[in-house]
Design a protein around this nucleic acid. Structure first.
Lengths: 238, 238
DNA sequence: TAGATTATTTAGAGGCAATAAGGAAGCATA
DNA sequence: TATGCTTCCTTATTGCCTCTAAATAATCTA
């Protein structure tokens, strides 16, 4: 090879980016059903089957684009976090949550795609890239919560009072996150995650249109609840 | 016509039911992508285009089947409610919530379909049947909450302290539900609804698999939170 | 019984996923 | 520098899909 990245590799990389951009454009402008192998290829200026040199099948293309979205979302959250590098951890947590919703609102098609695409494949394999990107996304708030836990521990339930099955699952999760949070604290974190992510999920999936046109105040109220649960509702914001 | 329902109408009705059953079978056994006009027709024993005498297009078939699912889910909830006709309203509310999850767990494909199908059509029209059925579904818990509100009022926030935009939206919703609940109480109801439905949404969409394998204890904890919010956490269950 | 309505069929246009086979261009090495 | 390998892309081709059109059979109505 002529350099660390050969000319071929650079061209290929550029084509991949062009493919992703085309897929995204189709998604945003015409909905998820419009993101077909043929349509993407047309958009890029190639003829259908050429795309199979870049992805094994339609699912793999979808997975790659989804990974992009996860990465972009995670990056937006990380940026919100780093922009407040010196601030109290509670403040950074709230900023990251708002950044998460801001990205979802600014990119509803992409955020919806994140939920919609797994439906097509309930028997999905790990799908390295996508799964990796999803983990990074989940990790942002987990990291901050772990930091909060270590510097300003929040109230947690007594492990002995939780149902046995829940205790087991939390212990498994405790191991899965390399002990970043003890099971009781992980339970609080997951409860917050469920409320936060669940609300955004419903908003983007238009499950609340029957009552709300603008969920911003509902989201802010949710954040206040989470702040209470995490003990970051005082002025110092922990 | 020979009777209030002619022979033709009865046959047509039977065919419609057969079509729905075929669509559901395909959904459950092979996933939502398998529910195509052609596959359903094959299943019923008709050749493709015949289905267009029953539904204008694929979307309409999907909508009709979705309406079925909503009706079945609502019926399950209503049955749980009516089975405890004399019980305190708080107890009935919790029973209905559990019936809702029980149906979702017993019919994951159908429950997921309820969320997944709207994604395909973000610009969806009212779609009479489907919308009607969704309303009936939402109405079950709204009715019970209204009954609770009238017999054992639960704590509500001060309307003056809510953000103006939220206040406006709640007033609009107050009118939409024919004044069944005043805006402040509607706000509490909607908060509960979001947590309940959001949790089920995430469970069925496998958004929590990374942490939980069995969400039953998480759901029960959610119910306890709702019971506190609705003031039905005492022994008498309101 | 004749005409209208309804149910269903085959034929076909157009699109999509995926495979196969072949050509053109870049790249490496003898 | 000429030969061969790899990569990229193209044009068929298959099979399934949606949906329309036209024709046929069955059923009801007057």
């Amino acid at each position: 090879m002529s350099a660390s990245t050969s000319r071929r590799q650079r061209l290929r990389q550029a084509t991949l980016e062009e493919i992703h951009a085309a897929a995204r454009k189709l998604l945003v402008e015409q909905g998820s059903a419009a993101v077909t192998i043929n349509a993407v290829a047309r958009q890029v200026g190639m003829s259908g089957p050429a795309l199979y040199h870049y992805y094994a099948d339609h699912d793999e293309l979808v997975g790659a684009v989804t990974a992009d979205f996860f990465r972009e979302l995670a990056a937006a959250m990380e940026q919100a976090r780093d922009a407040r590098a010196g601030a109290p951890v509670g403040e950074r947590i709230l900023a990251v949550c708002r950044a998460m919703r801001a990205w979802a609102i600014a990119h509803p098609a992409e955020f919806g795609w994140i939920f919609a695409s797994p439906i097509a494949a309930p028997n999905r394999q790990p799908d390295a890239a996508r799964h990796q990107a999803a983990l990074r996304f989940e990790q942002v708030l987990l990291d901050l919560t772990a930091e909060l836990w270590q510097t300003h521990p929040f109230p947690v339930p007594d492990l002995a009072e939780l149902p046995a099955s829940l205790r087991e699952q939390l212990t498994t999760y405790f191991a899965a996150i390399d002990g970043q949070l003890p099971p009781q604290a992980a339970h609080v974190f997951l409860s917050c995650w469920i409320r936060l992510y669940g609300l955004l999920c419903m908003e983007v999936l238009h499950q609340l249109d029957f009552a709300y046109a603008d969920l911003e105040p509902v989201f802010e109220e949710c954040l206040r609840d989470l702040a209470v649960a995490l003990g970051i509702d005082d002025d110092a914001a922990a």
